[in-house]
Design a protein around this nucleic acid. Sequence first.
DNA 1: TACTCACAG
DNA 2: GGCTGTGAGTA
Length: 625
Amino acid sequence: MSEYRWKDLLDINSKSKAYLSPLSCIAHIDVNAFFAQVEQIRCHYNVEDPVVCVQWNSIIAVSYAARKFGITRMDSVFDALKKCSNLVPIHTAVFRKGEDFWQYHDDCGSWHTEEEKRLTPEKFKVSLDPYRRESRKVIKIFHEWCDMVEKASVDEVFLDLGRNVFATLLLGDEVKGFESIRDQFKNGEYELDDYLPTVPRDLDIQFDPGDYNPENEFVFQDWDDVLFCLGSKITDKIRQQIIDVLGYTTSCGIARTRTMAKLGSNFKKPNAQTVIRNRNIGYFLDNGSFELTSFWSMGGIMGKELSTLLELPKEKPLRYIRESWPMASSDVKAFMKEKIAMLADDTERSFNLSDEQCQQLSEKIFLLARGDFKMPMNPRPMIRSMMSNKNLRGESCRHYQDCLAWLEVFSGELIGRIKELEQEYERIFIPKTMTISTRTPGFQRHSRSSGLVVGGRIKAKDLMELGTRLTKELDTKFGNTKDYYPLTNINMVISNFEILETGRTIVDMFGRQTQVIRKSGDDFVKPSDNHSNSDDCEIKRTLRCEPCDMDFETELSFKEHTDFHYAMRLSESLNGATEDSKNLSYGERRLLFSSAKRPAKTSQQGPSKKSHSQKKSDIYKYFSK
DNA sequence: TACTCACAG
DNA sequence: GGCTGTGAGTA
């Protein structure tokens, strides 16, 4: 008989409960040496070419081909060239001081170029935009497969595969051998607290690729083994699609919890996956030379201090934790908590933890060492602020004019990032506050902030104007004092975003809803990430546009329609009512829109100077995707 | 709200 | 090691 119950299995079909189930199936996937791969693909090299991604003279990402030569992120380009004369160093895109767009300068890298062509921090600022763009493409693929995707950083995600594996096991018929449990499920022949039946012996599946099974255990002992196997086949397909469509190799870990999945993805690189089955957790942790500091959030001071406090041995420290506190009962945790608190007091370390925090911490360590620390998938919090920052060396910002030149860069970068956000969330973001900060050679900080008032969407010009004013204020106040110039840092922060929802805005325009605008706030999450109400049910509602007397079948077509209205209104408010917008039917107008295509994607942004017609197509560009 | 610190990549 | 970003804690 299985050690799991029906409710454990059913829970993984619920977005809110899945991660808590003992049968949960979580994946962590990261793109190998992401920046290096982006550059490799962009410049048409292949996996065997030793590409490195460069910033000034430093290497910020090393492809696996280059790692074979012993090159690391610590090396300078010159060091790396000594290790590998065929090295392919590719510099990141950069903004030039005084310009508000970024560009690649593939003909003038920073290693063997004449002085005047060299990319230096005095005249340029690195742009990470290309990586954010590629990241979005990758994330999009994950969303096509999985209903819970958490973007953990620009190059890694967590996936809750609960619904995927549940469906493969109980709803599909691809895999033979599950007929009996499927019938039982379909006919409702079970109680939630009943144990699941024994796993059939004659399953028509192979646990490959990725199974971590060093002790050569019988593969399908229980349903968790089966589910991980199904999950690994899904991630294998996802990863293959990423290779096929975008060309990037990834590493993947699959396990019961996020922390274990993350250790798994790091286990084999590049282009590999590792499944840490529940029965192998202890073996994996003890024989993979893992310690407390291996876990996410324990990598810094906290993990080191705790290891010392708890007197963890060098050998198999996690096994030591498991064996020192062998039971999960609350008094054992209380004991451990006490020990942490006691040691913290005794040794007068940098700890200052409340009783509550000690309790939580001990609980966390207890669970981490057992690969059982469960964390929910988090919807990405809505943006609060956005910064464009430049550390300056030498004389590159000696007076007011220099500041303005960097402001151009900041304005361009921030506008670009707002556009990215707007595409990702299908919302309009309007910052209401701007801060300009500077740092003097004596590391003194000064800042000025002010409200940003603009009608409609923010433009680079708006940022530039306010930025100029604030910089002027700073210059007037401090510019004449000694030790202000040359600045060692200057940055622009925009915050306090007003977030317009395109669909709702237009609906409101026609008086069907009261809520138009939602301010940026804690409760704002992307609809597809909104776990609370998307759980197991769907709400059907009628989608109708009164003014046009039209009904819509799908959310998508309705949204398209309302976006059309919105864009038209926006266009009118900016350009005045046009013939286009006055007398055409919806169908005719729609044709106008779809024929206004976004320019083909290029590897660089155009300068911001635009003719009138280009300005107009900007509006179209946004909505014609 | 502004600032610092810890942590991550 | 330079750079960017986030969340928690603090005043």
